[in-house]
Design a protein around this nucleic acid. Structure first.
Lengths: 339, 339
DNA sequence: TCTGGCACTCAGGACAAGTGAGTGCCAAGT
DNA sequence: ACTTGGCACTCACTTGTCCTGAGTGCCAGA
């Protein structure tokens, strides 16, 4: 029994199953793919593949369906790269080039991904962990409140309103502002907590309360864990994935509504060959996503990987096309954020 | 035939159907409700109700199901107020009191609503239309970019980054800042476009480019149409609404993903008695929401209604409870935003 | 105006039989 | 040592029939 042919059979099964959404039998396989052997031979190969856990039968008299392990092998070794059509590339480029803003880039990207993959798209905001401070600004609002703004090099803008006892003197404020910026700008967000610890000592007692309030607000904006954000689009595509998948749509919706779950999946994911990572079915280690897969890729800002983007869809998805789309979009986004 | 009893029958049908999710027959009706008459009598009433279009039969040998018109009558005239439990009131209060921020209020509210109604919750951000300008701030970012921030009295913060030819002089900047604030703060957002039209004339030619860039950014932030925003939560609850509803979940997901659609529904909706508005099934005038209803209520900031919040669920929903919850939450939110 | 009785309708469940896609295995062929 | 045709076997799915029960509409009598 040829090992090569066995893999070819697995590849054919995955492709057919993804296409027809029905268990695929030996006869259909030889008809649709020119494997050059008879159904009986295929059956032997299939039996072997089943023993090794790559495919399974829903019931005795049915064809075979890939298992998670089967998809994994397919993704790792069998799927070629499926380049995007020039039209798609153009569409990506023109759509993303129009973005004016980080927010704009993110929302355009997520919609674009949902549209071209016809699946649920996820884009993670540039992680604060790897960002540096670009600027800190203090704006008095009326007499009792102060707006504290933190801008990162990736373009994220975090803001907090802090109540203040009395209106701070403008000189004290601008003093604080320049000191803050001198101390913090250019530094990584993860470093600045330590930096801030020493700051209050540099001020007179009358300003201490103000300084502390501002620093608390900044500290709060820096709470990296909590401030990780993701954006979704294309949830409705879940319903288009065939009636069988609609049955298990509830748990999936719950999972993706819990942004924390998705974030965890994304951040723990490693990119495979071609810069794209895939988690298949139970690999997500999350009930509710047993029949779903996640395809994602990191994207960069100014040359450094700052976050991930990708899609989530039924385990039975077209991996080559999806992976190509995710990779392409990630690259374009990185290019846009390069500046 | 007593008109009163006919309405009582309709009420009973709606309540039973909402509860059991099955068409309700005459026998079950007299058993579960003490109507004091026989099934045959009920049948006569039902026939009349059907003639008038309040109820319908899925098929000949089945019980009756309320039509949209039936639900409408029920909501308008038959449903009593179902007060929330003290525990729920407390939960609402404690959860919302913890909010620190407009964003925080909105996200907490939407989650809360989704949780207590077990449906999809929608909260519209305070509309820019009715907001006034609290403050405008200009922050230079490096040498080539300027951050323009607009803060409204409702607490919304809009920001835009504008590229500038060369680094503006600090004095020119602060001059512009004070002029802008003097001219705009306290004014309605809808007014300021006109105000801004005259501003550039007040500056020397060398600063004109800068002024125009800033004004364009502000104009952009003020694009009231585009900047209307809504937040959703509890989409997964759609899947819990019974298997029949899951069939039509696709169109509903599409509709709610199109925020514009929801916004239109909300803004065109009028509050009925008790300050709560309801759109039932086809009243939404949107394919895809034929089997869904929207229950919403306006909420106020500083005494003036600034936006709406509510829930979306299957036509077959528990209107009294849902309406009570929406109303209660809207009131608490208004209270929080009163200050 | 209400009610019991009665004939009628019809969805849904149970059961049986037939069909066909698909399998595993084996013996013969290359 | 593979490959292949043949063959018996399994079993989901479809179709058809029958039956049951919930529910209705109508009518005649209280």
């Amino acid at each position: 029994m040829s090992e090569d042919r066995k893999l070819a059979v697995l590849r054919a099964i995955v492709e057919d199953y993804v296409h027809t959404r029905e268990p695929v039998g030996s006869r259909a396989l030889v008809e649709r793919h020119s494997l050059g052997v008879s159904p009986a031979t295929i059956r032997n190969d299939m039996a072997a593949l089943e023993d090794e856990g790559y495919i399974a039968q829903p019931h005795t008299s049915a064809g075979r369906v890939p298992t998670d392990k089967g998809y994994r092998l397919f993704v790792d070794r069998l799927s070629g790269v499926k380049p995007l059509s020039p039209a798609e590339k153009r569409a990506i480029q023109t759509l993303l080039d129009g973005a004016v803003d980080l927010d704009d880039v993110v929302t355009r990207t997520v919609r674009l991904l949902a549209q071209i993959t016809q699946q649920v798209a996820v884009v993670q905001y540039p992680s604060l962990t790897r960002s540096t401070v670009r600027h800190v600004e203090l704006v008095p609002l009326g007499t009792e409140r102060l707006l504290v703004i933190l801008i990162t090099n990736t373009g994220r803008v975090e803001q907090r309103v802090v109540p203040v006892a009395q209106e701070p003197v403008e000189t004290a404020l601008s003093d604080l502002r320049t000191r803050l910026n001198r101390a913090m700008s250019g530094r990584r967000l993860t470093e600045v907590s330590d930096i801030m610890a020493n700051l209050p000592d540099q001020f007179g007692t009358e300003d201490r309360a103000l300084v502390r309030a501002v620093l608390d607000a900044l500290e709060d904006s820096l709470d990296v864990e909590r401030e990780e954000r993701i954006v979704l689009a294309g949830t409705a595509n879940l319903a288009r994935s065939g009636p069988d998948f609609v049955q298990s749509i509830g748990p999936v919706l719950e999972a993706i509504e819990e942004h924390v779950v998705l974030l965890k999946l994304l951040t723990e994911m490693a990119d495979g060959a071609g810069g794209v990572g895939v988690l298949i079915g139970s690999e997500t280690a999350h009930i509710g996503l047993q029949e779903a897969s996640v395809v994602s890729s990191g994207y960069a800002s100014q040359g450094e990987v700052v976050a991930r983007l990708g899609v989530l869809g039924p385990t039975r998805m077209d991996y080559p096309t999806t992976m190509a789309a995710v990779r392409a979009v990630a690259r374009y986004v990185s290019r846009i954020l390069a500046s």
